[in-house]
């Protein structure tokens, strides 16, 4: 299995961030996307997840029939995708059932997942009762309870303290050791060994606008 980007255009609405982005991530490898705020990291990650249209070039996930990268991925964005009014257990078991996909192996059971994040015993609490850091870690438990070969992580440890970050880095390493692929946008180094790095440098690019049919010269 291999996640490949060929001649990719990273763009949102009418603004092109980068052109000709290429990378290939093998099983057990990670791609760390770095760069200052607003450079297009989140956009790139949302494109891989299939949440934004790909304006140019293409993504493929080789070796997993004809599945789009999004379907084979976990996406941990800025928001936790958990309901405050429901208990942790309800939230997590919902995602486990909803994301159930016979073509992937089963994930970890609830208690094992929460235990791995150091939050065992809090499953009965409403999600809204947890602190921000706990909420983030509980959201991460979703990645363990449902198996997806690709993890797309957008600033996963931004709200976490050093110990929790290290705990999460351990989980990421385990996922890679099991043959998973990780694509992460982050400021903090996650302490990953086999990590490719894709530095999005704002000075390196020439921010341009997408071919705007309404521009003065018409074809732009």
């Amino acid at each position: 299995m291999r996640l490949v980007a060929e001649d990719l255009t990273v763009a949102r609405a009418d603004r092109i961030f980068f052109r000709g982005v290429e990378f290939g991530v093998e099983e057990g490898e990670a791609l760390l996307v770095t760069g200052p705020n607003g450079v297009g990291k989140s956009t790139l990650l949302r494109m891989i997840a299939g949440l934004l249209p790909v304006p140019g070039g293409r993504f493929t996930l080789d070796g997993l029939d004809d599945r789009s990268p999004g379907e084979a991925s976990h996406y941990l964005g800025h928001r936790n995708a958990m309901k405050h009014d429901m208990s942790v257990r309800e939230n997590l078991t919902f995602w486990q059932q909803f994301m159930q996909d016979d073509r992937f192996e089963d994930g970890a059971p609830l208690f094992e997942a929460t235990e791995s994040l150091g939050l065992g015993g809090l499953e009965h609490l409403p999600f809204g009762y947890l602190s921000a850091g706990q909420q983030r870690r509980m959201a991460m438990a979703r990645l363990l309870m449902v198996h997806r070969p690709v993890w797309i992580l957008d600033e996963p440890t931004a709200a976490l303290d050093a110990a929790s970050s290290e705990m999460f880095a351990g989980l990421v390493r385990r996922h890679m050791a099991d043959g998973g692929i990780v694509v992460a946008a982050t400021h903090q180094p996650l302490g990953l060994d086999a990590a490719h790095s894709l530095a999005l440098d704002p000075n390196d690019r020439d921010v341009e606008f997408a071919a705007d049919p309404f521009a003065a010269d018409g074809v732009a």
Binding site: D14, F209, D212, F214, A215, A216
Partner: peptide
């Protein structure tokens, strides 16, 4: 409408 969008497009470019 085309002129309106052209103006908007030029403004964005100018800001950029």
């Amino acid at each position: 409408e085309i002129w309106r969008r052209r103006v908007a497009s030029m403004r964005r470019r100018a800001a950029q």
